[in-house]
Design a protein around this nucleic acid. Structure first.
Lengths: 235, 235
DNA sequence: TCCAACATGTAACCGGTTACATGATTCA
DNA sequence: TGAATCATGTAACCGGTTACATGTTGGA
């Protein structure tokens, strides 16, 4: 859903074509949002259908006509309304944490290697934020929007903070893994060897032991807790 | 794709039904991964087709038969292989950052209110991590998997670190917004008023000014940079 | 000569969400 | 009486990705 508003946001700066919008995405919000060309074109069509943007064709002979989109009054109103509404927290999906969660079955060194590679990836991404910061500044100057550039900079800081935290956590986790007893790791788990073969009731029993009828920590519960409490300082 | 491996990961602990898998998800990995019941059922069917799990029916008269899934040798191998492979970095998608990015057009106080509500949401979620930590411990005891519980705890720490960083950043951003000049905010932007009406060339000109033929910071570029460099300590 | 930039799209697919359906048992 | 638990699914939809199609101009 946010894509729609990001497009409105850009069109609220200046009228432009789908092709140009793609460039704006790639040069300014790439660090926290990506949009494919094809997606932009179809979203624009949709926005036009809702009368939130309007399009006029600029004829060209040598290449496909330019379709320049501009935001409508309705579009601007809807944008402002959306911007002033609290953001719904995103569902986190972290493949790395799945690997770590189930990673005890790997030889410890293998698991640590995966963690190291995560750190390396994060560092590599973090290096690009300098460029991103420069970009926000350049845009501000080029477009005469220095005020906007100040909030743009805050979004880059968010990404930096986020990555720094990720790196710090991962390094701490690696240190902890290194302090753990090697014997517990690897595909065969000591306990399993001493114990009678696992039967189909085990999972049931464990679930009963853990959740003694108590309310569970469900994603839906989380969502409810977070969206219900929207009753603060914004109205 | 990770869902598939999460299922294999759980089935590698114990054989169980789709219904029980859902509970395991909700009580243990909910803080970084969610899976809907319907999705679990169809994924299991798919895994069975690939011979990574096998199913046997436990007949029941009073309610639908239990379909107990267990991991196969192939499944275990594929799981181990996947676990030992570096995680591909996820595309970040942060609606809040879109709001902030375009938020200059809001009255400053409105934008700050959105940020405050973000902080409140993050705090509310952070409160649940105590429970999550308890859960990992309980599971470890109940299943006789104390070693696994140690790595489970690391995943909870990841979420905690992540949220703490989010809160700290947001509070800092709020402080900065509060120090900014009020006049720059709101739907009408001073510069626009003094300047001639915006024409359809403006976006073009700005893009030219900012990206003087220089390589751009594209998501694809980022992806390339991050996946190319996988040549470290894992093979 | 060949690739990048300009400029538009369509179609297939994929992972995930939401809604709907069925039906017994148990507990408040 | 009515909700929650147990236990299975199907179908529609939705946002996003990947692949494919078309065709000119200008620069390395």
């Amino acid at each position: 859903m946010s894509l729609k508003y990001a497009l409105l946001g850009f069109l609220n700066y200046y009228p432009m074509t789908g092709y140009e919008l793609k460039k704006f995405f790639d040069t300014s919000v790439a660090h926290f949002w990506n949009a494919e060309q094809s997606q932009i074109y179809s979203a624009l069509k949709q926005l036009e259908g809702e009368d939130l943007v309007e399009m006029h064709v600029e004829a060209q002979t040598d290449r496909p006509n330019r379709k320049v989109y501009s935001i409508t009054e309705d579009g601007r109103n809807e944008l402002l309304e959306w911007l002033a509404t609290p953001a719904e927290p995103e569902q986190v999906r972290e493949p790395l944490l799945i690997k770590l969660f189930f990673g005890r079955v790997l030889p410890r060194e293998r698991l640590i290697a995966v963690m190291h590679s995560q750190v390396a990836d994060l560092r590599r991404i973090a290096e690009t934020y300098g460029e991103a910061m420069e970009m926000t500044h350049k845009f501000g100057v080029a477009a005469g929007m220095e005020k906007d550039a100040q909030v743009w900079a805050l979004t880059v800081e968010a990404s930096i903070a986020h990555h720094r935290a990720g790196i710090a956590w991962a390094e701490d986790a690696i240190a902890k893994l290194e302090r753990m007893d090697d014997d517990g790791f690897g595909a065969s788990y000591p306990k399993e060897e001493d114990n009678p073969p696992v039967d189909a009731r085990a999972a049931r029993t464990i679930l009963e032991m853990v959740t003694e009828g108590k309310p569970q920590l469900r994603a839906s519960t989380l969502a409810a807790r977070t969206t219900k409490g929207d009753d603060h300082d914004n109205d």
